[in-house]
Design a protein around this nucleic acid. Structure first.
Length: 272
DNA sequence: ATGTCTTTTTCAAAAAGA
């Protein structure tokens, strides 16, 4: 009797974003997670390490090519690609030549333009830090509009440091003055979505919180007192390819975890 | 106000960023 063959799995591309909160200190966790979930593309934020300390060798040994823009102590972003070298397209968000904070990197991978971004936190609010956060988000909106106008299949992934709505934070008043929930920041995120960029996690999970961050303080992980800060936004050209979305919550419960968990999507690959 | 975690400045302890 002939063996019945299963139809081949339809190919899909897994893209994740992970605020790693210190890549050197968190490297063992990252390598475990890469091995366990095998994402095709990974956007990392808060490397908190200068370029020369980026663990390129360990990441290459895990099967990933990488581009990165590090910074001592704070910020720093990277893009990893399984079995491929990401093709760097930019290392800075356009619009401010004096910006010294490394919060944006962009590369072409698998026919998709992938950005790893880390928006300013913006606290204390109100104040100069918050003004700078809004200015940075304005620059992101302009760049996103450029990409959309060119019909680029793109994903803007990272830590936006914004809870888009009240569904994205647990029931509390303790963040009332925090920059992460302010209407001015939410309005900028909303403009991105209204202009056609798809908030992939929210699009596929309209009713569940889908938190990606739990503060280290006050047992917030144990209480599931979380916030959804990490987002993957798909350009109009890429949106029809969206298949699945989720959060690797279990990562937050690991010993020595980042205060963020990875968020991910799967896509039908782009025809090239 | 505090809570946690970590790094930085500068060589202890306190501030800063998140």
């Amino acid at each position: 009797m002939p063996v019945k063959r299963r139809p081949a799995e339809p190919p899909s591309l897994r893209i994740a974003t992970f605020n790693i909160n210190g890549i050197v200190r968190r490297l063992p966790r990252l390598l475990d997670w890469l091995r366990d979930t095998s994402p095709d593309v990974v956007c990392l934020q808060e490397l908190k390490a200068p370029d020369e300390c980026f663990p390129a060798k360990a990441i290459a040994d895990a099967g990933y090519g990488a581009v990165w823009h590090g910074q001592k102590s704070w910020n720093g972003v990277a893009i990893l690609a399984k079995g491929a070298e990401p093709i760097l397209t930019r290392k800075d968000l356009p619009g401010d030549p004096d910006d010294q904070e490394n919060r944006y990197i962009e590369a072409a991978v698998e026919g998709i333009l992938v950005a790893s971004l880390y928006a300013p936190n913006g606290n204390p609010q109100p104040g100069l830090k918050f003004e700078r956060k809004l200015a940075w988000m304005n620059r992101l909106l302009l760049h996103a509009a450029d990409l959309a106008a060119q019909s680029v299949p793109a994903v803007l992934a990272g830590d936006y440091n914004v809870t888009p709505t009240d569904l994205d934070i647990y029931a509390t008043r303790s963040w009332g003055k925090d920059a992460l929930i302010q209407p001015e920041a939410r309005a900028r995120f909303a403009r991105l979505v209204e202009s056609g960029w798809i908030d992939a996690i929210r699009a596929l999970h309209p009713d569940r919180p889908m938190y990606t961050f739990w503060d280290y303080m006050r047992r917030r992980w144990e209480r599931d007192a979380g916030l959804r800060l990490d987002h993957l936004l798909l350009s109009p050209a890429l949106a029809p390819n969206l298949l699945e979305a989720g959060v690797d919550r279990d990562q937050r419960g690991c010993e020595g975890a980042s205060d963020h968990a990875p968020a991910w999507i799967t896509l039908r690959p782009v025809r090239r």
